[in-house]
Design a protein around this nucleic acid. Structure first.
Lengths: 193, 193
DNA sequence: TTAATTGTTTGATAAATGTCAAAAAAGGCT
DNA sequence: AGCCTTTTTTGACATTTATCAAACAATTAA
């Protein structure tokens, strides 16, 4: 792996503050740089996966197919985000959701068998896994809660305020799907606010 | 801890299939039986927490207070469920959500400092923590996704089909709040279906 | 640059859900 | 049992959001 990437990932993993130098180097060894072109599918819904990606640059969406055969966006990932269908990764069952690159994407790939063997060898990497899973849970939970008690207008306002960069990088049709509203409703909310 | 409880918790933890006998016994040592009466608050929204509970019997709800000062239910827990505001537990910040017993509740309490010291001493218990966190994530995620693409009627039907026992144990007003609809709308959906 | 395609906005109307009020039903208490 | 309180249902109406159609704008490709 080239030097600049190594130093970026060192910085990212060091920020969790649980790995020794040996653990960090062992972790870096299993990372494999991969690239996806715009619109490329990283994981198709209904297929199995044994990969986790860490985004270095670019944007990705997570989506599922509903009973009307429409795609519904659930999540957007950017720099330093972890991309994984956790339910499928840990159970080895078909993933309900899929991932697609929204921009040219640079990422690091982690294979399940490599990760699990590091978990066996390094208690501290198992700890890193636990902590990253906890943070992944916490970061998605609060956004999911919004759907329980905010209407479309409030969800739109919250997204505008808390993640304005999304409107720069993601098309309105993807954002509408993510907000659980139609393109037309999103257009009207934008005009109103 | 009395014998019957010990054997139940042994069975529950053994089902994860990661602990040695020594790890299991160490884990059981930190569990403290606690009881809550019906309607008692386990954790108030806006307060800190260093506890995880494992439900032995009874029912509990997780809720938050929205900007109209109304309670919104987010989750219901029953036998063998883990009860924790993970965001608050891991960050030691105020919890956005709270927990309340819906029935007389028997539970086992885990203290953060005890758990973290077991994490230090037993790699395998850190692994248990990782796996339970993953499963907690997976089980809540799929239900959260329903809010992205199902309307009130479909969410109601799915709950009726997948968790019929909830309607036996939880009042309609709590279920309506959980489904993100008014009591009146729930009443009409029930009459229609 | 034009033509074709795709994305966004606007309008009219329909469907879903909320609000407020009142009635009916169910559960507790003495 | 009878009364009181709480929960659930029903009705009338308001609001929010979806649907369908068309216009408009922006992007892409020849």
């Amino acid at each position: 792996m080239e030097n600049e990437i190594t130093s970026r990932i060192e910085k990212l993993i060091s920020s969790f503050d649980v790995l020794s130098e040996a653990g960090l180097q062992a972790f870096i060894k299993i990372l494999k740089p991969v690239n996806f072109s715009k619109k490329e599918i990283l994981l198709a819904p209904g297929t199995k996966t044994e990969k986790i990606y860490i985004v270095l640059s670019g944007a990705v969406r997570e989506f599922l197919i509903n009973e009307k055969e429409e795609e519904v966006n659930l999540w957007f990932g950017f720099e330093n985000d972890f991309v994984v269908s956790l339910a499928a990764f840990v159970s080895n069952k078909d993933s309900k959701t899929g991932f697609q690159a929204l921009e040219e994407l640079e990422a690091l790939e982690i294979c399940r068998k490599d990760l699990y063997s590091l978990y066996d060898d390094f208690h501290e990497i198992e700890r890193l896994g636990r902590i990253i899973t906890e943070q992944y849970f916490v970061s998605t939970e609060s956004y999911h809660h919004d759907f329980h008690y905010l209407n479309a207008n409030d969800r739109f306002n919250k997204l505008t305020k808390e993640r304005p960069e999304i409107f720069q990088r993601v098309s309105l049709s993807h954002i509408a799907s993510y907000l659980g509203i139609t393109i037309e409703t999103l257009s009207r909310l934008r005009a109103k606010n």
